[in-house]
Amino acid sequence: MSRIVTVGAAQMGAIQRAHSRREVVARMVELMREAASHRCDLVVFPELTLTTFFPRWWMESQEEIDSFYEREMPSNETAPLFNEAARLGIGFSLGYAELTPEGRRFNTAILVNKSAQIVGKYRKIHLPGHAGHEPWRAFQHLEKRYFEVGDLSWGVWNALNGHMGMMICNDRRWPESYRVMGLQSVEMILLGYNTPRHNPPAPDHDRLSEFHNQLVMQAGAYQNGTWVVGVAKCGVEEGCEMIGGSSIIAPTGEVIGQALTQEDELVVARCDLDLTKSYKATIFNFDMHRQPDHYRRIVEQRGAVAPQG
């Protein structure tokens, strides 16, 4: 027996600072309609989909900073996306900057079911970049200034006929992001990213940007027996080039669909969630093979040894 979830990875091309949310949502609705024409059950949009990647600027005006955040979801600007999802009977995942009623700020993703109801929320935990102004950089990466570390951990939700999880961008580089969800029997991880090609502190990494992106997603999928849907906002945005490579990756670690452009593009794949079972029951049967107590003892023993020299 198969449990097929047809997924549309809705890659977004560059969003410039002058683009309004209304314009961006119109593009998203077009991708959603295209996904519906392919009978998709789920559309996955990137990290911080609704605006340009604003952490690349040092801003001191709180009014200017706050203009990039969403105070409610859905909002007047995003309502057309929710309305169209309900009309089409399609679920979606969306990344955005969240400003809570208490004044807290997070890099957030939500999971929305086919009735346009929010059924899951995740707040990014592994914030990259820096918190202070570093004018030597070609562009800033100020996520540590504009966001708090996420406080919701990595949840897994029963939705869309499967166990769904979410992570955001830099989370994908850290194995614990996948493993915490893997321990909750996750079957599909939805992952949006905005990744610049150039890494100012380590420019020697630039040539490997796409390779490293694929490496961590494919390894995370295989090592946890889960589907991974990685979706980029890409292209040249305000002079900063961001990588694409939006991919749908099977629990085997194989890429079964990938974007070919740096523009708005939909990648579609029929994903059998039951394909996860073989990996979870055999080579990555955590209950049978994983030894967390042994790891803990090693760490404790090493921590008890005084440093030499």
Rank of each mutant, 00 (worst) to 15 (best):
V5F: 06
G8T: 12
H19C: 11
R22Q: 12
V24A: 07
M28G: 03
L31A: 07
E34T: 13
V43F: 00
V44P: 06
L50P: 05
P55D: 06
P55H: 07
R56S: 13
M59C: 11
E60R: 06
Q62C: 00
F68T: 14
E72Y: 14
E72Q: 15
P80Y: 12
L94Q: 07
G95F: 01
F106M: 06
T108E: 15
I110F: 11
K114N: 09
S115T: 06
I118W: 11
R123Y: 00
R137G: 07
F139Y: 12
H141S: 13
Y146V: 04
S153V: 05
V156P: 04
M167P: 08
C169V: 09
N170Q: 12
W174I: 10
P175A: 15
G182L: 02
L183Y: 02
E187M: 08
M188R: 02
I189D: 01
L191D: 14
N194G: 07
N194S: 08
T195S: 09
A202M: 09
P203W: 07
R207Y: 09
S209T: 14
L215I: 11
Q218K: 03
Q223L: 15
A232F: 02
S246E: 04
T252P: 02
G253L: 04
G253S: 03
I256D: 02
V267Q: 10
D272F: 00
N285C: 08
H294Y: 15
Y295K: 14
G303M: 11
